[in-house]
Simulated scan of single mutants.
Amino acid sequence: MKKVLISLVLLLLVGYSIAVSVEAKIPGGVKDISKENTYPNPTQDLPYLQPSELAQQLVESANVPIENPDLIRLLNESSVSGSPVAVGYRATVFLGHWALNYESGRTAANWEYEKINTNVTDNRGGERQIQNFYRQEAQKRVTGGLTAKIPEAEHVKKMMLLKAMKKTNLPLSFDTIVGAGTKQDHVYNIPPKKMGYLYAYAPAINEKGKVTYGEVYLVLRGNKQKIIVKNVTSQGIGAWIPIQDHVSFRFSISDRPR
């Protein structure tokens, strides 16, 4: 009985790992248009901020994990004197209420997040096969965002973006544009007496997890410094994050206009 249970658990784990890898794989119908896009989207550059020596010591001293790059930047810009005259000195400095960290729970792709274009080719009066191809008719802006209103929304978005980019290894941005006139070379054939519809969609990542908040205090005791976090709370949150410079295509043939 124990061997059967172990086998079932292993099968479930294998199935889970397969599901995750399939989810992360880009389907054949999704094309990278970074070279063809007539609108040059700025590259999202959100590197993990390296804390200074002092900031690292403070982060490690905290009773709650701190990942917020803006809070780490604030600590990087801080300095505390190590003068011997500080012996016996006591102070507590309130640094504010912060979104401290984000824990990713689920990351999934929606390859047809938002329709951005339709190319229609009518061959109902034709006697031979003709071709349809993608051409972006009008500039299209695609935006994502958080699924609920929460405190420190911009800080949370940064942390969610960092986690989602690391998990998917995809170029993600909460705001991306596909320029008018953007083309793709792939050809879609339309037989005689038919109409061809080529739909283009902007894909996006759905990120879900938990954000932790707290009141951050810098505590000074003589030559020693540490961070104490009080009134810690957690809240579930989700976000849609478009995949930059990628388009998902779906082609269909019809006897009549749609």
Rank of each mutant, 00 (worst) to 15 (best):
K2L: 15
V20H: 02
A24C: 04
P27D: 11
D32Y: 03
I33R: 01
S34P: 08
N37D: 10
Y39M: 07
Y39A: 11
T43M: 09
Q44A: 05
P47Y: 00
P47T: 00
E53L: 06
Q57T: 04
Q57P: 00
V59R: 10
S61K: 08
A62I: 15
V64H: 08
N68P: 12
L75R: 06
L75A: 14
E77T: 12
S78N: 11
V80Y: 13
P84Y: 02
R90I: 03
V93F: 05
A99G: 12
N101A: 10
Y102S: 08
A109Q: 01
E112S: 11
E114T: 10
T118S: 12
N119S: 11
T121D: 06
N123A: 09
R124W: 04
G125N: 13
E127Q: 14
N132S: 13
R135S: 09
Q139L: 11
V142M: 10
T143M: 13
G144N: 04
L146A: 13
P151T: 06
E152V: 13
E154V: 07
V156L: 02
M159E: 12
K163V: 12
K163N: 12
K166F: 07
T168H: 06
N169D: 14
L172G: 00
F174D: 00
I190K: 13
P192G: 03
Y199P: 00
Y199C: 01
A202P: 12
P203W: 02
A204G: 03
I205D: 00
E207D: 11
Y213I: 02
Y217N: 11
L220M: 08
L220D: 01
K226R: 15
I227Y: 04
N231T: 15
V232N: 06
T233S: 13
S234D: 12
Q235A: 07
I237T: 06
W240S: 12
I243F: 01
S248E: 07
I253S: 01
I253P: 03
S254I: 06
S254L: 09
